[in-house]
């Protein structure tokens, strides 16, 4: 915060509100989780020790905290593999989402102005249905006797039932489907901003349409590509519902591991340590995202 003594005190209230929100609903819960990750599992309610009490004193409380859970995680390849696998699945899924979303966003940005609100509405429309229900719907589509098999058999493209339910492929389909709007909207926003006369200028100077795309359109849409990729990648790494419902036993994702530790093994401290580490895995892309936003703001001054 700057030390300038602004006479307008109301400005500080405006700035304070979101920070206060973050403090109460993000930072404090984070410290609760962090403290949990330093605790030991116990067969009790709540299932961990130590629990702070005034009778034992603060020093006694702190002396019982340790990094045991973290050393355990780093010692067990299951967790490390789950982290790597999550990052890999999220990265591949993000790239696939980009491939699907870019032509759609391009089409939307080039569509007649009068259509654009309607198209935007169609993109947002799936949000009106519960996320969980939409993923369940994919089970009905992807299962061997599901709609996809039925449809493709009818068309004569396949003769045997599709075996993609409970595989990583199904997880990719689920992530691409669910996160498509998060990719599409920033892409659309950056593509829509491009002045069409820039493409005319490129063609006028001898650039064929496909080259114009790579020389002008794509570089100018990069802020949207970055924003979209991070908006998809960050939540996809910790995704739990999609791998749980659509993925199989071979789909290793940290969100699922975390859930298992928390609910099946009732090991809250270990689950908390997994969650804290997940946060650190995501800090890198989040920082990149912040920097990108900053650069964009500066460029658009």
């Amino acid at each position: 915060m700057s030390s300038s003594s602004s006479p307008d005190i109301r400005r500080w209230y405006v700035i304070a509100a979101p920070y206060l929100w973050l403090l109460i609903f993000f930072l404090i819960p984070f410290f609760v989780v962090f403290k949990l990750s330093l605790s030991d599992v116990a067969t009790a309610i709540p299932p961990y020790t130590p629990i702070f009490s005034w009778s034992t004193g603060i020093w006694e409380f702190f002396s019982q905290l340790d990094f045991e859970n973290y050393t355990f995680i780093f010692g067990d390849p299951l967790y490390i593999n789950a982290y790597f696998s999550s990052v890999k699945i999220a990265a591949v899924a993000t790239f696939l989402t980009l491939l699907v979303a870019y032509p759609m966003a391009y089409g939307m940005a080039r569509a007649p102005k009068a259509w654009q609100p309607t198209l935007m509405m169609l993109v947002i429309l799936p949000f009106w249905t519960s996320f969980l229900i939409r993923i369940y719907a994919w089970i009905a589509i992807l299962k061997p006797e599901g709609f996809a098999t039925l449809f493709l058999t009818k068309l004569g493209i396949i003769s045997e039932p599709l075996q993609i339910m409970n595989t990583t492929t199904a997880v990719y389909i689920g992530i691409v489907y669910s996160y498509l709007p998060f990719m599409l909207l920033p892409l659309y926003a950056s593509l829509e901003k491009i002045n069409p006369s820039l493409l005319e200028a490129a063609q006028d100077l001898g650039s064929r349409p496909w080259r114009s795309f790579w020389q002008v359109t794509f570089p100018l849409s990069l802020p949207g590509v970055f924003a979209g990729c991070l908006l998809v990648f960050i939540p996809a790494v910790g995704e739990f519902v999609i791998p749980d419902l659509l993925g199989g036993s071979d789909t290793l994702m940290i969100g699922k591991t975390l859930w298992t530790e928390f609910f099946n093994n009732r090991d809250w401290p270990l689950a908390s340590a997994v969650a804290v580490l997940l946060l650190f895995v995501l800090i890198v892309p989040i920082v990149i995202f912040q920097r990108q936003q900053q650069l964009e703001r500066e460029a658009g001054r």
Binding site: A201, Q203, D204, L205, G206, R208
Partner: peptide
Amino acid sequence: PYDRPVNM
């Protein structure tokens, strides 16, 4: 436009 001997 990309083949024309004019620039705008």
